[in-house]
Nucleic acid binder design. Structure first.
Lengths: 111, 111
DNA sequence: CAAATTAATCGTAATATTGCAATATAATAA
DNA sequence: TTATTATATTGCAATATTACGATTAATTTG
């Protein structure tokens, strides 16, 4: 055991779950926030910003790249990272969908 | 190793990461969607809805309760669950904050 | 009271994630 | 070419998560 039974769920549910994993670690949130705030391509100064080892940062960057939220282009020796605008919009909409699903006409419909 | 180094990050970052974990598994998304769509208190018919064992569902429900997204009240032999409206709003705002952080004036600011 | 029902918890196995040192890779500089 | 620099990958240890059978706890029914 220990394996998520993906086949029990819809593609949409599995998608959202995977995307949510991007946000499910503070280091990845820190990376995302850093890229969002700078709103530009950032060379990998992230290692000095966060207090984690270079290998660990690289691993988190890879996770974010796999999910598609960030993209990186090689610039000589270093790599520039930034938010992927298209994917960001997609991810935003995925979350919006579920958040908009909740209508609470009266405060009393809850146990 | 294997422990997330929470002390390296802000409380806000750790909070969002924890909340995101609610969405980071398709079964929990399915549970949330089920409660959202019914928009009412639902007795534990979730076990028959999803294809997971009773113990597993209970475990996911507990995770959602710990995060605060759902609440349950005992109704005789069974338990009624529903979305916690206040917390839901909070969670929604946490995600909104980070999503609103992204401004993309021109499509060319990305590598 | 005993049986039935419902859900939580415990214990455990399997898999996933996190973190890092060491190493590999790739581009540039000397 | 040989350093140097920046990042990725590998291998591994520690911890977390997922799943479920078995058990427990609490309530209701007969």
């Amino acid at each position: 055991m220990g394996v998520t039974k993906s086949d029990l769920f819809t593609e949409e549910q599995n998608d959202l779950a995977n995307v949510a994993k991007a946000f499910a670690h503070p280091a990845r949130i820190a990376i995302i926030q850093y890229l969002l705030k700078s709103n530009a391509c950032i060379n990998g100064h992230l290692v000095s910003e966060l207090g984690l080892a270079q290998a660990t940062i690289s691993q988190h960057l890879r996770a974010l790249k796999d999910i598609g939220i960030i993209q990186g282009t090689i610039e000589g020796v270093s790599v520039s990272y930034c938010i992927n605008p298209t994917r960001w919009e997609e991810v935003k909409n995925l979350f919006s969908e579920i958040f908009e699903l909740y209508k609470n006409p009266n405060q009393q419909n809850c146990c």
